[in-house]
């Protein structure tokens, strides 16, 4: 990396980091100026201090919650994506699945969390299901939108060229889903944390950040509650950034004017040759 690109990259990172720092400063100033008692809103320093003291325990809890988020996210996104593809290909599936889909979103997640625990137990499973339920809906809707967004004339052109169904799907319809799919994934990534915490609150026996949060709240240890919130937020932001990075890799045509040659040396479409 040249000096200039390095400087540019740091410059780009500096703005969001600065913004986060600003939030902390404003928070600190407000707490001090308004003289808010520590058990109502702790200062940033007190919060970070609790985080440091409780870190050995918090680290494990963060891992557990992250795991719930990641697995639930992957399951929800995969189910949503494949369901959308199946719905777009086969009319009957679309007719059957659509009302169920809408119904699944109309059910308040909070309300089904408890019965889910009865069915799935207190382990990882109910949390994954709740996270997946939240992630999967935007994925289905956006993937369907992408599949249906393909210009009819482009599909006609593919027909004129005697395109084979599978190849037309892989080369034309599938890539059209990428942009809306990643929008859905970014929304989903930030929602996963809410799902995981909800799951942990219902299945009280678990050992995640959500449980810690409840426990500390009961003890009026507000600084610890805020610490847990910071960690949960960090998980959501990390997920969002990861998806954004993947998006840049998966859709180079949106951010770059040329494709990199190196990446294209061994492309998969070479294999289908007769």
């Amino acid at each position: 990396m040249s000096r200039r690109t390095w400087l540019r990259a740091t410059g780009r990172a500096a703005v969001p980091i600065g913004a986060v720092a600003l939030v902390f400063v404003v928070w600190g100033v407000l707490v001090r100026v308004l003289d808010v008692p520590r058990y109502v809103v702790p200062s940033p320093a007190a919060t970070l201090n609790t985080l440091r003291e409780d870190w050995p325990r918090l680290w494990g809890l963060t891992l557990t919650t992250t795991k719930e988020c990641v697995i639930g996210f992957v399951v929800g996104a995969a189910v949503g994506f494949f369901l959308a593809v199946a719905m777009a290909q086969i009319r009957t599936i679309q007719r059957i699945a659509y009302p169920i889909l809408i119904a699944s979103q109309a059910i308040p997640i909070v309300a089904i969390a408890a019965p889910l625990v009865l069915v799935l137990g207190f382990g990882l499973a109910p949390k994954i299901v709740i996270v997946a339920l939240i992630v999967f809906f935007p994925v289905v809707v956006n993937t369907l939108d992408g599949l249906n967004s393909v210009d009819r004339d482009l599909l006609n052109l593919a027909r004129v060229m005697d395109g084979r169904a599978l190849r037309v799907f892989l080369n034309i319809r599938l890539p059209a889903t990428f942009t809306p799919l990643f929008s859905a994934l970014k929304i989903g990534a930030t929602y996963t944390v809410t799902g995981a915490v909800l799951g942990e609150w219902t299945a009280t026996a678990g050992r995640g950040l959500g449980n810690y949060l409840l426990e500390q709240n009961a003890r009026l240890n507000t600084a610890a509650v805020y610490g847990a919130v910071l960690l949960l937020t960090a998980i959501g932001i990390a997920g969002f950034l990861l998806i954004s990075a993947l998006e840049r890799l998966a859709t180079p045509w949106r951010t770059r004017s040329t494709a990199r040659r190196v990446v294209r040396l061994r492309r998969r479409d070479t294999e289908g040759e007769r």
């Binding site: 004339d153 593919a158 060229m161 494709a259 479409d269 070479t270 040759e273």
Partner: peptide
């Protein structure tokens, strides 16, 4: 057609070989 109907995610080369990509595969 009047619209160029180029596929945004394929490069110039990728668009030119579209006919092959949709049938036998690009060699």
């Amino acid at each position: 057609l009047q619209k160029d109907l180029l596929v945004p995610w394929r490069t110039v080369e990728g668009n030119i070989v579209m006919g092959a990509a949709l049938t036998k595969g690009v060699g």
